[in-house]
Design a protein around this nucleic acid. Sequence first.
DNA 1: TATATACATGAACATATAATCATATGAAGT
DNA 2: ACTTCATATGATTATATGTTCATGTATATA
Lengths: 111, 111
Amino acid sequence: MNDDTELELLYDLSEVFRVFGDTTRIRLLSALRAGPLCVSCLSEELEMQQSAVSHQLRMLRSAGLVRPTRMGKNVSYALDDEHVASILDLGLSHVTHRRAGYQYKDDKEEA
Amino acid sequence: MNDDTELELLYDLSEVFRVFGDTTRIRLLSALRAGPLCVSCLSEELEMQQSAVSHQLRMLRSAGLVRPTRMGKNVSYALDDEHVASILDLGLSHVTHRRAGYQYKDDKEEA
DNA sequence: TATATACATGAACATATAATCATATGAAGT
DNA sequence: ACTTCATATGATTATATGTTCATGTATATA
């Protein structure tokens, strides 16, 4: 793998994480962990406007993290990939580990 | 765990991913995977201004992803946590898996 | 102490991004 | 065909974010 390919890979990598790196999208993914849900259900669950939810679902779709299935009038969304759940889990374990008391020497209060 | 705590957890989670979700920071983390490096080395490696690198290292520090150690005039940065490498790896495996030919029905060309 | 080197940081600016509003599309029922 | 319900999407706007420039701080060395 040459430097250029590696760079592209890193670009893709940061793009994936960027998609995970938003509160609304994380909440959507988290809600879908329990199983597929339609847009209006997600909208109620997060107490957000349907439009906002749809916009974010679109991003998740483009990133290949969720998959839509039409069910009559509704569209049901599901996590697309085992990786998605794994990444969520690993992130969670990191966060909870840090919460559990592990502290850093400085920068604790930084922006 | 009540809903409030869960919500906070998800906020923290998205924050962690947000930090990973930038090209410069991913490149920094990736460079540090091979071992600790000082700021000027990272600056050269990424071919970016020292100031930009420092700003991003500050974010990585605040997030607890890297740890600085002063070595004389230089400051050496290292990945702070095993989790960091794991998360990078898992993200990479997701990206490479998708690259390897798995394609989605639509949304392939979306923004 | 004066100077140089390495790094950090505040301010400013340009760009990216998420929510909202209005509206379009699409499916189901009358 | 018309209406209703569910979802998608374009445009707009407010905010967030990354880089640059200028400058501050810290360490080493003459």
